[in-house]
Design a protein around this nucleic acid. Sequence first.
DNA 1: TTTTTTTATGCACACGATTGCGGTAACGAT
DNA 2: ATCGTTACCGCAATCGTGTGCATAAAAAAA
Lengths: 343, 343
Amino acid sequence: MRLEQATIKDIARELQVSSSTVSRALKDYPGISDETKRKVKEMAEKLNYRPNAIALSLRKSRSFTIGVIIPEVVHFFFSTVISGIEEVAFSRGYNVILTQTNEKLAREKSSIDTMLSNQMDGFLVSYSKETTDFQHFSKLLNQGYPIVFFDRVPEISGAIHVIVNDYAGAYAATKHLIQQGFSRIVHLAGPSNLKISQERTRGYKDALHEFGIPFLPELLVECTQGSDEEAHKITAELLKSISPRPDAFFANNDMAAMGAIQACKSAGFAVPQDIGVVGFSNWQFCSIVDPSLSSVAQNGFRIGSTATEILLDWIEKKINPDTIEPSVVLETELLVRKSSVRT
Amino acid sequence: MRLEQATIKDIARELQVSSSTVSRALKDYPGISDETKRKVKEMAEKLNYRPNAIALSLRKSRSFTIGVIIPEVVHFFFSTVISGIEEVAFSRGYNVILTQTNEKLAREKSSIDTMLSNQMDGFLVSYSKETTDFQHFSKLLNQGYPIVFFDRVPEISGAIHVIVNDYAGAYAATKHLIQQGFSRIVHLAGPSNLKISQERTRGYKDALHEFGIPFLPELLVECTQGSDEEAHKITAELLKSISPRPDAFFANNDMAAMGAIQACKSAGFAVPQDIGVVGFSNWQFCSIVDPSLSSVAQNGFRIGSTATEILLDWIEKKINPDTIEPSVVLETELLVRKSSVRT
DNA sequence: TTTTTTTATGCACACGATTGCGGTAACGAT
DNA sequence: ATCGTTACCGCAATCGTGTGCATAAAAAAA
């Protein structure tokens, strides 16, 4: 069925030379006559020869492939990260193998297993929400496998992290709301076991403190799922139960922010006149919704590309993971749109 | 540095048996004593043995890896497709190698090259906007490589397609707008060289015809980029230049639909009271924007999973591509929300 | 012509796993 | 004692490529 791919041996047979000569000729090794090189290259062209990367991988114990493990592909942020990863990997001649864990620890572990079988040169990981123990990662690190974590990063030694300055982003967002005259600011937080959530909450608290606004525990709500429905429900309840009512929402992600806006509208409040809202991530839809949603932008593409550059440098031993800064922190940017600016 | 992965030979050496015995013991071949099997498996466990998939690929000329080529990762529709692909591939024990072409033909070709070097077992492709000649694909097909195209499919022989019923979706959307009392319906079409665009336009025209509404060429506008800015601009112009003004917009994608809505609002029209809008794709944000956007849903996850099932069946020779239906058409579903329903 | 040097090429093995075939014990039967 | 059978297991080749070492031929030096 399948027309066999031409191999070095085929070229060798056609030209009545040994396969080692062909191999060397193709790579312009010294010690091969120009005449032979020419003939070999011609024949390679003619037979449509393509080196077998599998055989090469076996020989060199290098696959020129990196494994990417993320919670979900269908997520604007992660898809931009993937885009950044793919871009850099491609330009540097590496393949990208992708698996999503769907936030399951078991899936995370089995993905690593198959990737190890496939001799990945390194890993890019954002771990699942279920993951609380990082044995499976630190074991790999100890065995010398390069791993760069991004977005969600574990606190284990030897790893390199690429993250955004969640603290500063949350601080800026909260500060902005305060400066717009809002003072009873709710924080719709993310799962507290994720460091990013903790950092954002810390930024929120610090900004309040900075401006002399007391932190009220009842204004800090954990949204475990981060969906718009969840945020909608929580927001509706808060608006009813707390008095005086909250006058602003700083959400851990844009989806939750949208849920909050809807709930506010349903409750008869105008955004941003009555209630200000700021999200986090700067998803695509932020600029096209009405009112447009202010959000803290985290450049997913740069996270992906930066993490990949570091990983490949590590793989190619251009850097030493023990001597460089273990955390790369990219800056966030608060994009102020209509949802948070009182007119 | 890297702790070497244990190989079959390591197990063999430890146990003073041959590597072939180890191989057979691990696979429960007959002709190996239970005692030996037990010892081999114990040692494998102890040494943390993991079969080297690369070596296996070389031996069997099978990599258990499929190559996915898509225009862009950062695109809600494609990310859902990827999710479907990944899900099926993982459950059937295959790896997924991903590349994006960024709509460039050159990138598409070079991706195929590296994938061929890496001995992919098959391909899933949605080609770039630049691609008008399909030589590079038909060549592969002739060589016996399985390729399943999805969403954007070429008209070449031997390929299998997985697409959605764009025609029916567009027809339903247009019909719905007509039944809501709209009659001067603009179609913001996609690039006319893509078959999906042609089909949607055909559905639009047929629905008009069905209800006795004359087709006006000035109401059919091609949006080559499909961005909200582009649609915004075009819509604003149409509202000014055409008299009597259009009273509805059926957009080729949701982003364009959002641009149209914004333009309508800016021009002082209310959606859906004055102007009805329907999009295509059912992106995530459709339900959370205001007014919520009616859209034709195309189930990306199912497209991805279906295409992958077919591809793997083909690879594993469970199906014969010459005898089965070359096109799998998945149904679309019109989701009616507020943007198109007159109150 | 003989010896040395250069040039060009081939041999053989390695990478890790699989597998057809052959070999060697042990045991029972004749 | 000899043969046949059975149960286990090892040898060696294979997949495609790269590379150290040997080697042959050719050219240069003596």
